[in-house]
Nucleic acid binder design. Structure first.
Lengths: 217, 217
DNA sequence: TACAATTTTTAGCTTACCCTAAAAATATTT
DNA sequence: AAATATTTTTAGGGTAAGCTAAAAATTGTA
């Protein structure tokens, strides 16, 4: 499927476009389009005042762009809750369908869906659902990769890419589980986690960026 | 919003494209596009083998096109049930949102939604929901306009255009209500219905095409 | 500092939808 | 049957997305 404006905005947001400049290159990868297409779309979104652009540097969302991003994330995550809780999807299946539905949801529909679902705060991967007014509660979760050995923590939020969730499933990593970080291999080697039952799991350095945790001690 | 292929197919189906040839003119009206656009889209759908075309006559769905139409109607109507039963929409509010959602629903999603809703047979306006395999139960409902005075009947299905449903609401006509057709004004004048409680309502000739009933006696 | 590599931008073309205006075909009325 | 009206088609353009290939700018390295 060819991405549209909304997908670009969301991708920029997800790559840190709220606070930092996001490079074309990362958008090329995220959206699977050519570099030329990204340049062109940047131009369009710039003209609409949704982002600022520093040539050869990248783009950053304006408040207006940010609001659209928040709204999209809200829609996406509420649909994820619906798919998971009401239709019985596994947490690694919800992403693709939510991605379609989010673009086809009127604001009124989303507010009713929110009520129907009981105004949930988190999606199935622990992501915070932005409020109706576009504000998002900031959680002080830490990327697993930043922890020191010996730290006890609880898994709070994970990236929602299908393949990544399958990886975690395979590793038996779930939201809410508690672990100790036993060891960190140098040179971006894997991290060894030990669950409270004593089981050990290896998590790659790259994956450790996508797992957010709450430090227990 | 600009209609896409799917909207054309659905519109052709809804104008009788299963059995009759549908004119460009009626599609122009239904989709609010120019005549040139209809001609052009006909060409595209023809090339894909979804319809047959008789120049200056109109188009008709092929089995392949028909299957797509059935699938779309299934998606549309299941979403209507969801919006009405789960999200508390009134029956005259469901159409627009269902129209968006139907294009953003994977087949897998729809089957899960169907189960979640309890495999409903009818949408909120009494429309039959096509089966998974694309077949549709044929109901022998009669358009109100074809009845003779004195006939007793029950309202079974109505057209789902927002404005029409508002008209019916205004007239206090609801699915399941029983009436007698008291009088038919000549020259396409209104029809007088009398409810079982004795209340009389006037229904326009044009509206009487869009109300399907089951004859009681 | 200069050359090489990478990244971004520009140029030019494609597709799927849209449109208006004019030409062609069909249908209706006189 | 001819003239008029309606409908459909063709011709020529437009916009929003995409692409490749080449040029320009920046960044990294020797």
């Amino acid at each position: 499927m060819t991405p549209n404006k909304e997908d670009y905005i969301k991708a920029i947001y997800e790559h840190g476009g709220e606070n930092d400049v996001v490079t074309n290159k990362s958008l090329v990868k995220a959206l699977s389009v050519s570099a030329a297409s990204v340049t062109e779309m940047n131009g369009r979104l710039l003209k609409e005042g949704l982002l600022t652009h520093t040539p050869y540097q990248g783009v950053r969302l304006t408040p207006k762009g940010l609001q659209i991003a928040h709204k999209l994330i809200r829609k996406h995550r509420l649909w994820e809750v619906f798919l998971s809780e009401k239709l019985g999807y596994d947490w690694n299946e919800v992403h693709a369908d939510a991605d379609l539905l989010e673009h086809a949801s009127s604001d009124a529909l989303i507010e009713r869906l929110d009520l129907f679902l009981g105004e949930p705060q988190y999606d199935p991967h622990g992501g915070v659902i932005p409020n109706k007014d576009g504000t998002t509660e900031k959680l002080d979760h830490t990327p697993l990769v930043e922890l020191k050995t010996g730290t006890h923590f609880i898994i709070k939020e994970v990236n929602d890419q299908q393949e990544f969730l399958e990886y975690l499933l395979h590793k038996n990593v779930q939201l809410g589980n508690e672990y100790v970080l036993k060891e960190i291999e140098p040179y971006e080697g894997p991290l060894t986690l030990q669950s409270t039952e004593g089981l050990e799991t290896l998590i790659s350095h790259k994956a450790a960026f996508k797992i957010l945790v709450k430090i227990v001690s």
